[in-house]
Design a protein around this nucleic acid. Structure first.
Lengths: 153, 153
DNA sequence: GACAATAATTTCGATATCGAATATTTCTAC
DNA sequence: GTAGAAATATTCGATATCGAAATTATTGTC
């Protein structure tokens, strides 16, 4: 799939969709990053880790990589910083000592539990620029696009 | 705008659209970053700067900030690195010496001119997961969402 | 024409992000 | 049961990214 010639019109269309997608994602994440930093002193990646731990429970770093689409080395850094601030805890699993399980501390749990509702409300407000139907359409299109990407292009 | 209560259903829907949008953007940019690094040793930000200069001509850093949605301090770093590799040139404008105009060197021009067609083809291939109509829909939805974001949430 | 306000860029310090190389531990063949 | 392969996480070096503060240049006011 994906090697046949599609012509300049197809290219123009795809490039336009691409730039719009990137700008929207950029705008949304920018708008969310500021209050997350102000309210809790967190970056979006740190917030993402805490949120995953809150909603899904303790997890290995490998599992977190999958949830958050980050590289392993990146996650090590993010968790280092969360640990430094006393928000998460690392523990080697005794059943498999290769694995480090990450879990929330009380401080981390109360922080993310306090922040998440505001975050969700802000997302809801941002997406209110689209009708409910449009939001579902956007989600479906992004899902199709995202899941189609597995191999190098 | 944006403060009235919308209920948990609206929240679920918006959160779903949000996560799909982020993952799609993440997947697309990840898929494109690899070949750009392999073919030309460039990061996506460096590529973005060169592309803007190729298609729009020499520009001040402030103008580049607007085009690329990056902070000024970030752009300084990116251009430092491009300059280090001899791909762009900085020149103080004599008409207004606060402004630094950035332009492509011959080396930078030939690199980006060589790389861009492949990049465009890869984007076209990625977006071929969507029909032309769907690509336009996605672009329109992202545009609506993106342009609605101006103020803090 | 000096002085304050404004504008463009840079510097600084912190964190994110990647890929490659490196442990460390576990699993698999034999 | 031991050697090699696979899995998990970390380290390392480079670049990106932001916001705040500092720097340099211009403009507007009196």
């Amino acid at each position: 799939m994906g090697t046949k010639y599609r012509g300049p019109a197809a290219e123009t269309r795809a490039l336009n969709a691409f730039i719009k997608l990137m700008r929207a994602a950029n705008s949304v994440s920018g708008a969310l990053a500021r209050p997350v930093a102000d309210e809790g002193g967190l970056t979006m990646s740190q917030f993402g880790v805490l949120e995953a731990l809150l909603h899904l429970g303790p997890m290995s770093q490998g599992q977190l990589c999958g949830k958050l689409l980050l590289s392993g080395s990146n996650l090590t850094t993010v968790i280092d910083n969360l640990e430094k601030h006393g928000l998460v805890r690392r523990e080697r699993l005794s059943s498999d000592r290769r694995v480090v399980e990450v879990s929330l501390t009380d401080k981390g749990r109360s922080l993310i539990a306090r922040m998440f509702p505001n975050h969700a409300r802000r997302i809801t407000n941002l997406f209110a620029a689209l009708t409910p139907k449009q939001q579902d359409q956007l989600a479906a299109l992004c899902r199709t696009l995202g899941t189609s990407i597995t191999e190098p292009v």
